[in-house]
Design a protein around this nucleic acid. Structure first.
Lengths: 253, 253
DNA sequence: CAGTGGTCTAGACCACCGC
DNA sequence: CGGTGGTCTAGACCACTGG
């Protein structure tokens, strides 16, 4: 850990006199330090005044750099407390796409059960999406999510190995209902953002059985690619749910 | 502090010494002037230096106020040219929700045809959504959108009167394929943003006929509420399209 | 070229937080 | 209380746009 007061810029690549703005350069420098793990997710980075002094720039300039990283969701500011490295997505719940009626009132996290888990070779699409070499191994899982004991979502997950090795052996009955916080705790992987692609389809007989619906029942399919802080895709997920429970709101700006 | 010689030249309401920040107050003042039409959408407001002098604040402060309005999409900055009042949404195309195969390659704007148009009283939901008094009049229309002569989207539109009076008489065959720019040109209404609510359903016999699909065919329904610069809801729209053509990408941050 | 927004500085003071 | 980020100032100079 170290608060070595090296005169920061010395070993650095030089401040930019051309091309990029100074705060852009500073943002890049800080981004690198964050991705290299110099500061742990959830912890604070040095105060603005310290950074400004160590880089030899004015306060306003370092603040502009930090603002960039905040808008990238790499940092969060807390007035009076400090500037913190993001701890990533919490639930990123699929529930935002569906409205399942519950006995209770408000949205709760569905219970989660792993139906199957096996190690296998990635197919071409998976390897491509995950940026893996041909013939790489992945962990493939099937997961059922339920509310009040009633199945509502069926998921297929693909995780790259060895990054998620820690999940290949542990008892799935002990797993959390939310995966992303568990990824971080168990594997040190922070999910920073994700991209969901929605489409419409119909359940196969097997899928119908899992969800207690008929074969051919209309369903909404959500194909998610989730990324870590370094923008690497580290999870593929396909989620199926009853189309008649689908309800999603999008803003147009 | 504030040995400051405040006093913005005009009859403004006093600079805030309480509660709000200076730039927040300035943003509100400018927002009001924009909504009152002091500057026309698409035109530029006075330069930052002029605004700063006229309000008796530093450049950085006025810039912070302008940044707020930019983030609200009320203003757009253009380096070297000026700061402009937004001209609102252009297409806001429903095509972002659907993938219809076309003879050509790229996304073009579908041709548009008005199937019916009539003036009637708003029902309770409509009046509520549009902020109209009970018994107010609206313009109700049915609209079919096609690509390469093939119907793909069926829309039901509700517009408040007398705001859209200018659309009650003109020949619908002369209308543009994009409504929002026409709203602005013909009625002076700028569409600033919208909220789309997606759900799943099945076509009625009549809807199926319009879209050349079977009764009961799966469809995606988009219910849109569109707002003007003053955040008033000024259009209700329900769009139906083939569920098998549905494809939408959402970002999770 | 003159006029615009964009970057940067070196300060000052304010508002919030936790001890 | 000391330490943090947030606001604000009054300048200087840079970079882009258009005539």
């Amino acid at each position: 850990m170290s608060t070595e007061h090296q005169t920061a810029m010395t070993s650095q690549t030089e401040l930019p006199t051309r091309g990029q703005s100074r705060y852009g350069w500073l943002a890049a420098a800080l981004r690198t330090r964050i991705l290299q793990g110099e500061w742990v997710p959830g912890e604070s980075i040095p105060p603005e005044a310290v950074l400004a002094r160590s880089y030899g720039v004015a306060l306003g300039t370092i603040r502009q750099a930090l603002s960039l990283l905040v808008s990238e969701a790499l940092l969060e500011r807390r007035h009076g407390k400090g500037t913190f490295v993001t701890s990533g997505l919490g639930g990123a719940s699929m529930m935002r796409f569906f409205r399942f009626r519950q006995s209770g009132e408000l949205q709760t996290t569905p219970e989660s059960r792993i139906l199957s888990r096996k190690r296998r070779l990635a197919d071409l699409d998976e390897a491509d999406a995950l940026g893996l070499p041909a013939g790489a191994s992945v962990l493939a899982m099937e997961r059922l999510r339920s509310i009040d004991r009633k199945p509502c979502l069926l998921e297929y997950l693909i995780l790259p190995l060895p990054m998620f090795d820690a999940l290949t052996e542990s008892d799935t009955a002990d797993w959390d209902d939310l995966l992303y916080p568990m990824y971080q705790r168990v594997c040190g992987v922070v999910i920073h953002h994700a991209e969901d692609q929605l489409s419409f389809g119909q359940l196969t007989a097997t899928q119908g059985r899992r969800l207690q619906l008929d074969k051919g029942h209309p369903c909404v399919q959500v194909q998610r690619r989730a990324f870590d802080l370094a923008q690497r895709c580290v999870e593929l997920r396909t989620t199926l749910g009853d189309a008649f429970s689908f309800e999603y709101t999008a803003q147009v700006r």
